[in-house]
Design a binder for these strands. Structure first.
Lengths: 188, 188
DNA sequence: TATCGGATGATAATTACTATCACCCAGGCG
DNA sequence: CGCCTGGGTGATAGTAATTATCATCCGATA
């Protein structure tokens, strides 16, 4: 892991151009309408190397589309994630989850019900191979989150109950999910 | 990585007993008062293998201390993290950050200003070694987040400007931080 | 180009915290 | 062992980020 591992702006620019060129056909395949807002959000996002928040994308778009709504930006970003055109860097949590286990270990998270299990994979504890820095960054540690589907959710997903759920994934059924083993009702 | 990698309940029970026994002396070392609430939060947390949210800890505590306040639970959990007696599983983000780069890569995050940089470490892309499942969990993928301090923040931290910041770390100075390159003021 | 359902903008509502502040009590002191 | 004092607590108001609602709009297909 050396300085080359940081993704460069040059690489990203070329990548952005390609992704944008494919975007309309990707939408059509998915049956999504191609609206100016949707294209604009995609363009701003894919041109950003800085992992913007919805507000930041919104601020950039306002210069061009003074009437665009922040809600649209939120919705569109979630839509892009849902169709695989973007990723959420803050993956699976919508509220802080605490762990009393301070021993080195990592986490296995069910992407559907958000159940978290500790996993202890010794090799994960040395991913940095003792490296102290990377470019201008001083390395402190690292956390591995393994995304998975627990047994219960796998069965539910297969029997067509309806797939994921997360703050901001777009469908409007009320859906029963289990959060930390408690069953509760959650809206979308 | 086999089934043994899941941390067992048996292990956790023994671990919990040990941690709790040490807790009061740990507080004393840090100059923290030993209050019934603080001990109770610690006890509930360390006995939970399910990475509870503040609300969940609160619900359990209410049975025992009907007057305990949710705010106290939030504060205490953050305090426990601050002194290293607990970890926050949802590490460094307080709002969703999106990435238009859907190519396999991982993230380097500055723990102080929360700047995010993409990193591409090919070996991180095969941490699961093609494993499809672990116990009842069907594995889908994994995300590595490398915690670091960027150059700017390293300098600031050294010159004593005051160290971290995060939703819920306890001090009351207003502090200048940079979020995604925009400079803004943020309260504590 | 008429139609229709998905998309949008405006805004209210919700969720998960955090700040404030008056009161309380843990722990050092005499 | 009973004061003192400041950190800790409970109650509650406030805030930030996101989601829901709904009337209106407009992109896509016929």
């Amino acid at each position: 892991m050396n300085d080359q591992t940081l993704v460069t702006d040059k690489w990203r620019a070329a990548y952005a151009a390609r992704r944008l060129a494919e975007f309309t056909s990707r939408c059509r395949e998915r049956g999504l309408a191609i609206t100016p807002q949707r294209v604009a959000v995609m363009r701003v996002l894919v041109a950003s190397g800085d992992h913007p928040r919805a507000e930041t994308v919104f601020a950039k778009l306002r210069k061009e589309y003074p009437n665009i709504s922040l809600a649209t930006v939120h919705r569109t970003l979630e839509t892009l994630c849902a169709i695989g055109e973007a990723r959420k860097v803050t993956p699976l949590h919508d509220s802080a989850r605490y762990d009393g286990n301070t021993a080195p270990h990592h986490h296995l998270v069910c992407v559907r019900c958000r159940k978290i299990r500790d996993i202890d994979v010794p090799e994960f504890n040395d991913l940095l191979h003792g490296r102290q820095s990377l470019g201008e960054f001083q390395l402190l540690g690292c956390a591995v989150e393994v995304q998975a589907l627990c047994g219960e959710c796998r069965r539910a997903a297969n029997s067509g109950v309806r797939t994921p759920n997360s703050r901001g994934q777009t469908h409007n059924l009320k859906q029963r999910i289990t959060r930390e083993g408690e069953t509760l009702w959650r809206k979308h």
